[in-house]
Amino acid sequence: MLELRLIQGSLLKKVLEAIKDLVTEANFDCSATGFSLQAMDSSHVALVALLLRSEGFDHYRCDRNLSMGINLNNMSKMLRCAGPEDIITIKGDDGTDTVTFMFESQKQDKISDFEMKLMDIDSEHLGIPDAEYQAIVRMPSAEFARICKDLGSIGDTVVISVTKEGVKFFTRGDVGSANIVCRQNTSVDKPEDSTVIEMNEPVSLTFALRYMNSFTKATTLSEVVTISLSSELPVVVEYKIAEMGYIRFYLAPKIED
């Protein structure tokens, strides 16, 4: 028996909008600790990892570990039918091959049930070791989204470099080149507006902008984005989800061939 009730249903709506274009179908894993997902995009260049911890739900019942294969596009279609203030409950059962999304309006005067068939998805789970990063940049998520969008209009790849001057985003295309430098800036009245750069050593890596612009669809989930870089590892772009978890995007770099 599975019953997860999320008062802030909009979080789930935003999560689906953030991942449905990157990954078409995935297994949602439900366990006592929470509701999670790990999936790669079709070209195995990027990986998304989602965790919504059980204590973040208003009611969390998961009798046995359950894995639900879902087409994310279809799930997104259903969640779009939920209002921004609706309470969303996910119901499943290990016996049935369906999942139900229940939407309750705030005034409890409208209850909707959307039922979807589950799919069999064989997805190998990857072990993601905790790593030491050479540089970690924490900045306003809207700022990062704007930079990726702007650079995406000039070139296809972005070179992200962290030095003691700050974090640099560089691209070059047919029309020319663009270079954006963001400096450490903690002298702001709101902490979420600050840019904090933790650099253990300088690092510079190249990534495909189309993936970065796909990740920034998660901007609505958090005012802050954290970008962790290491020359030996994929970049991690992380958006925290209001005290209940996170959505992390991992992207493999491009190298000079």
């Binding site: 990857l126 994929p234 491009k254």
Partner: peptide
């Protein structure tokens, strides 16, 4: 051009 690496090369199969 650059060579795009894949993500599964970095993580281990569980």
């Amino acid at each position: 051009g650059d060579l795009q690496l894949i993500i599964s090369g970095y993580f281990f199969q569980l």
